[in-house]
Write a protein that binds this DNA or RNA. Structure first.
Lengths: 121, 121
DNA sequence: TTTATAAGGTTACTATTAGTAAGCTTGTTT
DNA sequence: AAACAAGCTTACTAATAGTAACCTTATAAA
């Protein structure tokens, strides 16, 4: 496989001094948080308003949608655009770093297409 | 993008009658559960014993390792091999379906390599 | 031969995270 | 003027995760 495995990878650190395997761990758990993947998926269409996301994503509550968007913002994956603070028009848009998540989302799609869902029972 | 978006995809169903977007949602959240990704990553090396996983994966508790392995088994991603029940040698191995998760893991690696961690602060 | 140690867990309890539901503010529509 | 919509926040309950101790059986060591 292409990934560097075992000692070489496990011991390696990124420029910020973190172990690469920790970065991997943090990243997969961040994008795997409840609703996170599906929010990113919907934002891959382009910028969207809060109510657009909340109506497209069946079942999500306003509370968690807010929390996830703040999370994404805080980690530089999404930017919040509010041209005029007087007008309640807020748009959320993926940053370049956020848009690059598409390959991951794509890989999950391919897997689902081929293998079906994890929860097919 | 290659993914079928919006109505066409959102309304499509798999052979078990589930909506494709639900399968995607379930799958990403399943593999994003805490420790799940890193467990799968370590199993991509080949079959491993319980204590090998628990010592390679820094910080995981026996309780959650057990729980995650049962989860993976229940969803057909891992098989548990115990040749002789009298001997306490238990090995966990990815099924073909489990091995195909490699592309997803790989995509996350590529993203981390390029963009750094989600939690870099 | 008792004693200790390791594998592969389970149990009980606490802390963190998610879900549900209601409410709030300000602008627009009727 | 009253009702409604966007984009949140708050309060409370339920589910999931973390911590730590314990259990069983088999081999290794003293």
């Amino acid at each position: 496989m292409l990934m560097k495995k075992n000692e070489e990878f496990v011991q390696s650190v990124n420029p910020k001094g973190q172990k690469s395997c920790d970065s991997f761990h943090n990243t997969i758990e961040f994008i795997g948080k409840r609703w996170m993947g599906i929010i990113i998926y919907h934002l891959l269409d382009g910028p969207k308003r809060f109510f657009e996301l909340s109506s497209e994503i069946e079942g999500i509550s306003d509370r968690l949608l807010t929390e996830r968007l703040r999370d994404l913002e805080a980690h530089g994956l999404v930017i919040k655009n509010q041209s005029d603070p007087k007008i309640r028009k807020v748009e959320y848009e993926l940053t370049p770093k956020g848009k690059e998540l598409e390959d991951i989302i794509q890989a999950i799609f391919e897997w689902v297409k081929k293998n079906g869902c994890c929860y097919e029972e």
